[in-house]
Design a protein around this nucleic acid. Structure first.
Lengths: 148, 148
DNA sequence: CCAATATCAGTTAAACTGAAATCC
DNA sequence: CGGATTTCAGTTGAACTGATATTG
């Protein structure tokens, strides 16, 4: 049964549906390890930018501070990150990724790549590159003033 | 503060973020009328394909039957759709859009178009057409076998 | 008796809110 | 004391589950 053409004509609807499917597929894979998307996002932030205090993770990833605490809890329990108090400011908790966390992240990125390849399979390599460029430009525009 | 490049390299991540933003922006506009995205989706299905029984709406839109009932409730209360029992099978409830519903849908589509234009503003018309074509191909591929 | 439909009440996972405790 | 940080407990909205009543 087909979806309403009135909706499909809105490119943002199609875009949103694809995004939802992509998230669901990756989420499903992460669940087999007891992880969710936020766990991967936190690991990626730590791997890319080095240690963060939890507040920084919250604002970088746009995740609520109270949820950061819970995500870090499970990552610590799994040995993927370490928590230690900032000696200079003992309110702050610095979080860092462990070697085990880096290797875990590598596996997760591989899974995410597989999901992406499955989703983008209808496009050939040069189309994929073109799509990627356009998506990034649109994405950069989201935070620009006057876009809504 | 930047997002992790490890995530941005996954085009599906960017895609998902854009979709989420688009949904949030439209959702915000619909909320001023006391509506949500599902209300618009139901109106679009009725306008495009004619009357449905609720079960058909559920399977077409991939919305749970129990939620269809609630969505229809508020649309009926607003005079946008009509419910009437199917005389041939009194278990079934046929739902149809009213003239008021059609005019409401027209306004909602206009709002959705504005949101889309804001999101896709970084692209010129031919780029937008190219993006649209690629997104539709990817979307069609989602339901094909072997894509995951 | 079994299957389908609509509907209601309850559950679950996710994002958010508010408040407390600690520290600068 | 005011403000920042973490954390806990509770709330809210969305999607899903299960059960019931009705009808074919």
């Amino acid at each position: 049964m087909d979806l309403p053409p009135s909706l499909l004509r809105l490119d943002t609807y199609v875009l949103s549906k694809i995004g939802k499917t992509a998230r669901a597929r990756l989420s499903e894979r992460l669940a087999t390890r007891g992880l969710r998307l936020w766990h991967m996002a936190v690991l990626a932030a730590l791997a890319d930018f080095g240690p963060h205090i939890q507040r920084e993770l919250a604002s970088r990833l746009d995740l609520h501070p109270s949820d950061v605490a819970k995500v870090i809890d499970t990552l610590v329990a799994g040995g993927a990150v370490e928590r230690r108090q900032d000696p200079a400011d003992r309110r702050r908790v610095r979080v860092d990724i462990t070697p085990a966390g880096r290797s875990l992240l590598g596996e997760l990125e591989h899974e995410a790549g597989t999901v992406r390849d499955g989703i983008l399979a209808p496009l050939n390599p040069s189309e994929r590159a073109e799509l990627s460029r356009m998506l990034h430009r649109v994405f950069d525009g989201l935070h620009a003033p006057g876009s809504h």
